[in-house]
Design a protein around this nucleic acid. Structure first.
Length: 250
DNA sequence: ATGTCATCTTAGAGATGA
């Protein structure tokens, strides 16, 4: 089974890139983040035309997450206790339980959104209690955290910033402690499989990126291979995130 | 690194978020 996660930075704007990418890469399941559209505007018909059922949770301009599947789509839920923003959707896709997450950015350390981010992580950790680390299950998406210093292009530039604080890293570690494994993609250019490069200042060209998109999998969902599709980050009309793709032995 | 992109309001450029 081939799965992927991709922060598309607007599914509407990205559709001319997303549809051919689906046909080329042919994943069975895709988690999308930052769809930036309301449920009524989600391109269900375009996706169905290339073979995918879809579950979407979005309310307009910001956020929005989805799961695309051609392997089944059951038990869909977008409930995260205490957090009404559309940042999570989960479903059973054949043998695999899939959760697509878009963790709040946090903005700055003194912004209320930073506390919100940590609270959101706690709710996600609590939600896992409804599942078992023994079952084939993945949580994938934009965690907006760089787990290790090497996961940003220059840690010295992140002093006093979000994404690298001990509290944020501990929040991700809490998910791993439950029984999830951080499935790192094959090393990319520069030895680190970055998934995000800011649009500004030629960051992609200089490979000044961050690894903030994750595939977290239980051991019951064994991963044969995982890679970042950097080609999808290049050229006209690209998202600022690249897809993380993995082949599972399921 | 602060060099872009996407969306909304509302008719054109500014605000917002990332």
């Amino acid at each position: 089974m081939r799965i992927a996660t991709w922060n598309v930075n607007s599914v509407g704007a990205r559709l001319p890139r997303l549809l051919p990418w689906l046909e080329e890469v042919a994943p069975d399941v895709v988690a999308l983040q930052e769809t930036k559209c309301a449920d009524a505007a989600f391109p269900y018909a375009d996706l169905k035309a290339v073979g995918y059922d879809a579950a979407h949770s979005g309310d307009g301009r910001w956020n929005g997450v989805a799961i695309l599947s051609r392997a089944g789509l059951d038990d869909v839920s977008n409930v995260l206790d205490g957090h009404p923003e559309p940042r999570l959707v989960s479903a059973q896709c054949g043998p695999l339980h899939v959760t697509s997450v878009y963790v709040p950015n946090g903005r700055t350390l003194d912004d209320p959104h930073y506390a919100y981010k940590l609270a959101w992580f706690r709710a996600l950790r609590e939600r896992l209690e409804g599942f078992s680390p023994e079952q084939p299950l993945v949580v994938m998406g934009d965690l907006n955290v760089a787990l290790h210093d090497r996961d940003v292009w220059d840690i010295s530039r992140f002093d006093g910033s979000t994404h690298v604080t001990p509290a944020e890293r501990a929040a991700v570690q809490g998910l791993l402690d439950w029984g999830l494994v951080d499935v790192e993609a094959r090393p990319g250019k520069g030895d680190v499989p970055f998934t995000y490069w800011d649009y500004r200042a030629g960051m992609m060209h200089k490979n000044l990126g961050m690894r903030i998109d994750y595939l977290l999998a239980t051991p019951a969902a064994p991963v044969r291979d995982a890679w970042v599709d950097r080609e999808a980050r290049k050229g006209k009309g690209a998202s600022d995130h690249a897809p993380l793709v993995a082949d599972l032995d399921l």
